[in-house]
Every structure is written in structure tokens, then in C-alpha cells.
Design a binder for these strands. Structure first.
Lengths: 191, 191
DNA sequence: GTCTATATACCGATAGAC
DNA sequence: GTCTATCGGTATATAGAC
């Protein structure tokens, strides 16, 4: 993000935004180089291959999400408040001129991805599904969620709704995006 | 699909499958030509540009969906039964070795699409949101759905959950996909 | 309607100078 | 760490013969 950040970091920042807008197949090293203000071989100096760059990116993205989830767990005790804060993570991303979740975009393209990248994407989803499963289990145990669906099923439903809301919002050029969809879902599940 | 279908139809069939697997940027006219068993310029003879091919594809896909929705309306009177049949449309697609909805994939890539294609994708989502909105309105009016959310919000939630379930299922290489997610959602909404 | 041949541009990636 | 130059491959698209 910062103009004073190291080149490798700026390369990752630019590549991240390009993936969120156009996907893995929709950007090139030359696109990154131009946006950063260097030449294509300089990008290769920091990341040998495109797979290396995107895998590193996906891991960084997952790590940041992990920190955000940990911060939510510290800041909120109430499981429903935690779920609302979770929705906000996706809403904030999408509010940046319709940017998709990095791993939502890559997940859609999974069949066309190098193995390392696909594995990193799977790790992101595992992290989110595990955290959501725990949150819904807590919410059910204290009676804030009355659904008799299994926590893992509610987790898959929530994550799917939020990722899908970005895709639908973009494709339809309408709708409330993950913010509205997350609220609708929680309104039906929690009390 | 058929080996006796016209070449243009076979080209569209192959391109459709490739988009569902790899996305707009993930396939080439050469990929299509090889799968059909002709040469690249022969593909251009039927569809002048890639944008023409994919826009035609998206319109055909939307038309088929329109027919399927009309068939559901004829076959089912109960709005909840209609919604269950709607979920099955997505489940059937995804059951074909994890194929994504054509317009779900294209919706994610929307920023990188030619205008004609993006417009066709928006039309698909509009069709689905309108149909779902009517279905949820009916379901609320006859008391089968008790949520106080507006029908349009429930429609966006349902469509997002199903599109997202495909992305998450693929990216995580786990989960029940749109079938399970659709059931979980309807279990919480309908009675 | 299909083909060979080709134009033009871009892709990811490398070699080697500074 | 960045550059110029370039390799080999592939992309979309077209010209023109059969």
C-alpha cells in the first residue's frame, strides 16, 4: 500500500488488487511492473514465477485474515457479535470499489491454478470454516442461534453467502453485497 | 452435446464447459478447436470474436434457465417446492465434476469482460433475482416462509448462497456444495 | 465450411550488463 | 536490485485457397 514499502511488498499489493479485480488469468507481470513503476524482469527478481507470487499473496492474505479473526475473538465475547464482525470483514473488502475476496476469486478459478496456489486457497477456506463452525457452536450453546442445523453446515452457509454476494453483486451490478446478505442471514438465524 | 449437432452448437457446448472449469480468461479458441476436432479459424467462422462466442453462450444459458424456471412454475404450485426445485438446478450443474454456474464464473471476472458479455451476465442475475423474489413473496403470503425480510433480500441471499457454495466447494475441495447449502438455508426459512 | 499460412500482440521466463 | 534484450510459446484475429 505504502509508497515507502519495499518493492516486494508493493508488487504483492498491486498483484492482490489485480487478482481481486480480474482474477489469476486476468493480469500479467507486465501489468504489475507498470503499476509499481519498474520493469518486468524486476518483478521476476522478487518472485521467480507467477505461481510463486500468487501463492505468497494468498498466504499473506490468509495470515491477515487469521489476525483479524483473532482480534474479533479478543474484542467480542458474544458469539453473535463475533459473527456480525465477521460479516464486516467481507463488507469492507467489497466496499473498495467492488473488490472480490482474493480466495473467492481464486476459488472460482481453482481448476486453472498451479497446485501451490490452489493449496493456499484451500487453506484460507479451511481457516474460515473452522472459525465459523466454532462461532456457531458457541452461539447455539448459549441459545443465541436456535437453528438445529449442524455448526459446520451453518459455517458453510455463511461463508458461501458472503463469497456469493460479492460475485452476484458484481455480476448483477446491483444488490447490497455481502453487508446486506450477511445481515439478512444473521437476522434469520440469530436472536 | 450431441455428436450430430451443428458445428456452431458443438463450439458453444465446448466453450461453455471450458468457462465453467477455467473462466473467460482460462480458455482459448485453440482449446475449443481441438475439443471440437476442427482448426482455430473454423471457430472464428462461426463466432467472429471471443466476445461474440461468450455473449452468445451466456444468452443461451440464460434462455435455458428461463425455460427451467417456467417449467418449475408449471410443475409446482407450492412456493417452497418451487424453491427446492430451484436449488436442484444449481446442484445438478455442480454435480457435473464441480462445474460452476456459467454466469457465476463470469460474474466474478466481470471487470475483465467485454461489455456485451457483462451485460448478458447481468441479465442472467436479473432473471434469477426476479423469479426468486416472486417465489419468496408467494411463500410469505401463504405463510410457508415466516421471515420478515423483504422478498428481494431473501432472493439475493438465496442466489448468493448457491453461487457462493460452488466457489467455496471448489476452493476448499470440501463441503456439500449448493445442494447442502440450499437445503440448510431453506431449512431455516421455510416450514 | 474448413483449411494453411500468417499478422500482430502478448505471455511467462531467462541471460547478462550495470 | 534494476535494467535492456531476447527466447519460445501462445493469444486473438485475418487473408485467401479449396
Amino acid at each position: 500500500m505504502s509508497a515507502v514499502a519495499g518493492t516486494a511488498t508493493r508488487v504483492m499489493d498491486v498483484a492482490e488488487a489485480l487478482i481481486q479485480q480480474r482474477g489469476y488469468g486476468g493480469f500479467s507481470f507486465d501489468d504489475v511492473a507498470q503499476a509499481v513503476g519498474i520493469r518486468k524482469p524486476s518483478v521476476h527478481h522478487h518472485f521467480r514465477t507467477k505461481a510463486d507470487l500468487v501463492a505468497a499473496l494468498a498466504h499473506r492474505y490468509t495470515g491477515r485474515f487469521e489476525s483479524a479473526l483473532a482480534a474479533i475473538d479478543v474484542a467480542r465475547r458474544d458469539p453473535v457479535a463475533r459473527l456480525k464482525a465477521y460479516v464486516r470483514l467481507f463488507a469492507t473488502t467489497y466496499a473498495q470499489d467492488g473488490r472480490l475476496c482474493v480466495c473467492g476469486m481464486l476459488g472460482a478459478e481453482a481448476d486453472a491454478l498451479p497446485t501451490d496456489v490452489a493449496d493456499a486457497v484451500a487453506g484460507f477456506f479451511r481457516l474460515n470454516l473452522d472459525w465459523l463452525t466454532a462461532a456457531f457452536r458457541d452461539a447455539q450453546q448459549c441459545g443465541r442461534v436456535t437453528s438445529d442445523q449442524r455448526p459446520a453446515a451453518l459455517a458453510e452457509l455463511m461463508l458461501s453467502a458472503l463469497e456469493g454476494a460479492m460475485v452476484v453483486g458484481r455480476g448483477s451490478r446491483s444488490g447490497g453485497g455481502p453487508e446486506a446478505v450477511g445481515k439478512s442471514l444473521l437476522a434469520g438465524l440469530a436472536r
